[in-house]
Simulated assay, not measured.
Amino acid sequence: MSKFSASDAAFSGFRLVRENLKTVAIWAGLMTVLSILSNTVAIQFFGPKLGAFLNYISDNSSPDPDELMRRMADLAPMMLWSLPYSLLVNGVIFAALNRLVLRHQDSRLAYLRLGMDEVRQAAVWLLASLVLMGVLFLGSALSGFLAGLGGPTGAFLALLCAVGSLGAMVYLAVRLSFASAATFETGRITLFRSLPETKGQFWPLLGAYLLAGVMSVIVILLIWMIVYAIGLVASGDFAATGKMMRADTSSLKAYFTPAGIVQALFSGVFSVLTTLIVFGPAPSIYRELKEGRAGGSADGGW
């Protein structure tokens, strides 16, 4: 069985960033533009409701469930609109990520395309999300049913079911983590057929993904600390710095301020960095394992 180093794999996303700075800068710029455009559309049609919802969340540490659901229902049309947008963006960015790792020489247009590879990536991510959400939903429903039985036994069984459903979701997420890379490589939507690729690799993969996730959080926090430090030096007021970094989405006039543009800029940078650091290990490990089974070696680059 081919093996890999979980610790080395966890840092493969950082290597992708370091070795492809120009590409990362282009992706970050594109994501910034898309963030501004999507926010503009959302504010144009849902600005007041979106602003009220965000203010309610930020001002209430324990929001009322009924009021929260009512405010979310007001934003349902925006959520429906954002679904195809998110699928399109995910399809493009994950196809680009797989192309960067698996076809590194195909670097024209900074690995960005808009074709069937992107459509297949959007489809496989939608299918994987539906499967994982389905597992969690079934577990929650069964847990609620068991809790309804009452008594210590019912509560204990409900707890076991909840923990089991979370464990099953994590297990499936890890086992299906090569679906995106396999889909890109084969040119066919591959979900459960990618399971053999992760057979016997669950714990190393889980360790690599957890470490990558932790490192991603650390990087984001460090960037925010630097930004807040700069804002604090410039304004001399910590509270004002916090407000400066939170864009006002109540109207387009309020959004298109230095704070709104800064927030959109960092949103694009964070999105690209998170994608590379958190999701970069999966195709990198996939490539390493495939080359190990084939007796090949890496050709220098990602």
Rank of each mutant, 00 (worst) to 15 (best):
Q201R: 12
G200L: 03
Y209D: 08
L210G: 08
P196S: 00
P196R: 00
Q201L: 13
A182T: 09
Y209Q: 11
R193V: 04
A182D: 09
R188F: 13
G187F: 10
P204F: 06
S194F: 04
I189D: 06
M215W: 14
G187P: 10
W203C: 11
L191Q: 04
F192Y: 07
G187E: 04
G187L: 03
F202E: 02
I189C: 08
T186P: 13
F202A: 04
A182R: 14
T183E: 06
A212S: 13
L211C: 14
T198G: 05
L191R: 05
L211M: 15
T183L: 12
G207P: 06
R193N: 14
E185T: 12
R193T: 08
E197V: 03
P204A: 00
T186Q: 15
P204L: 00
F192D: 06
Y209R: 12
A208G: 07
E185M: 10
E185V: 08
V214Y: 12
E197W: 06
T198L: 01
E185C: 05
E185G: 05
P204D: 03
A208L: 01
P196C: 01
T183C: 09
K199H: 15
F202C: 06
L205M: 01
L211W: 11
R193P: 10
G207N: 05
K199G: 10
Y209P: 05
A181W: 01
E197Y: 07
R193E: 13
Y209M: 09
T183S: 14
L195H: 04
G213T: 07
P196A: 01
E197S: 11
W203T: 14
L211G: 13
R193G: 10
T198D: 03
I189L: 15
K199S: 14
A182I: 07
T186S: 15
L206I: 10
T198F: 05
A182S: 13
I189K: 09
A208Y: 11
I189N: 08
P196W: 02
A208D: 08
T186E: 14
G200D: 10
L211Y: 13
G213Q: 10
A208R: 04
L206C: 08
G213S: 14
G213L: 06
F184T: 02
A208V: 02
T186W: 11
A181I: 01
L206Q: 09
P196H: 00
M215K: 14
M215G: 15
M215N: 14
L206K: 09
F192R: 09
I189E: 06
Q201C: 08
F202V: 03
K199T: 11
L210Q: 10
G207K: 05
R193H: 13
Y209S: 13
P196N: 00
L205S: 00
V214W: 14
G187T: 01
P204R: 02
L191C: 06
I189Q: 07
L210C: 11
F202W: 15
G187A: 02
A181D: 06
G200I: 00
P204E: 02
E185P: 08
P196I: 02
